[in-house]
Amino acid sequence: MTILQAPDRRDHPAGRSLARKRSMTQATSKRRGATYELERGYRRMIIPAILAVAIFAIVPLAGMLALSFSDYHLIRGSKGEFGFHNFARLLSDQRLVNSIYVMSVLSIFGVAAQVVIGTAVAVGLQKIVGKWRLGRVLFLVPYAVPHVAVALIWLSLFTPTLSPINAFFDLFGFTVPTFLTTQNGAMFAIIVADTWTNFPFAMLIILAALQGISTDLDEAAAIDGASRVKTFIFITLPLLMPALLMVTLFRFIDSLKHFPMIFVITKGGPGRSTQATNFYAYVQTFQNSNVAYGAAIAVLLFLMAALISFYVARLNQRVSQ
């Protein structure tokens, strides 16, 4: 007796194709499952970072925003007013206007000096070869010194009775001008100290960018008879543009946080002429106990920094494309 057996569908060409499809679907599904698991794992891995940002950035920021709408005073407490009164006051505050002017001058001239000096040093260092390359480390030293220490060093250098620079020129009968007793002089002193400690950042970025430019271009330009200056201006500089742009904008954002230099070197003086915006927020908050108004100034500063950051991100995207 012949027992009829149902044909194995896998023996049939159509069945084989179906089985293959099924097996592929299962594999794909398994792979998808694995990918999903992997993605879930990755997502879990960023939870600590999200928590850290939430706790250390978003919560304080929300707190600052809430304070800026209140009337909270460290001594007098709060009368319960909640509204835009602090922001309305910002509009007519001459000290705030002066602080924005001071911050702009310090940032624009400081960053310009840092980028120019950083580029010049980077170009010089790139030419150095052999064991002397280790000398590059020396240029990083100012960047490693704490800002308060930098400020104290420059306070001494700008104080005529303590400064070796003044003592040196005195030997030849020259009088070095006094910097810390005029607004322009005091701002110049802060810019010099800030430039000294921050130009190595610009130098590092530019040096890295320079090393990414092929030397073939220089050689080709030399063969065509271009001078070194022309080669730098018409070949190297355009290729450095993305790096220069980025370093300028990053330094500009960072420069909005002028504090240790002002606090140590001038204490905001002479008068109030070097009180930059964040220093003014500090004065209102800690010195005048006016926490709510200090928070409103900080919110304004945050918005300015956020706008610049947004612009940096957009620019970064465009440069990358």
């Binding site: 304080p60 707190g63 909270y72 709060s78 009368k79 926490v291 709510a292």
Partner: peptide
């Protein structure tokens, strides 16, 4: 209100 302000103050500064 004072509690809210104090809480906000603590949130914004004490994090430091």
């Amino acid at each position: 209100m004072k509690h809210l302000c104090t809480t906000a103050l603590v949130a914004s500064f004490a994090m430091a």
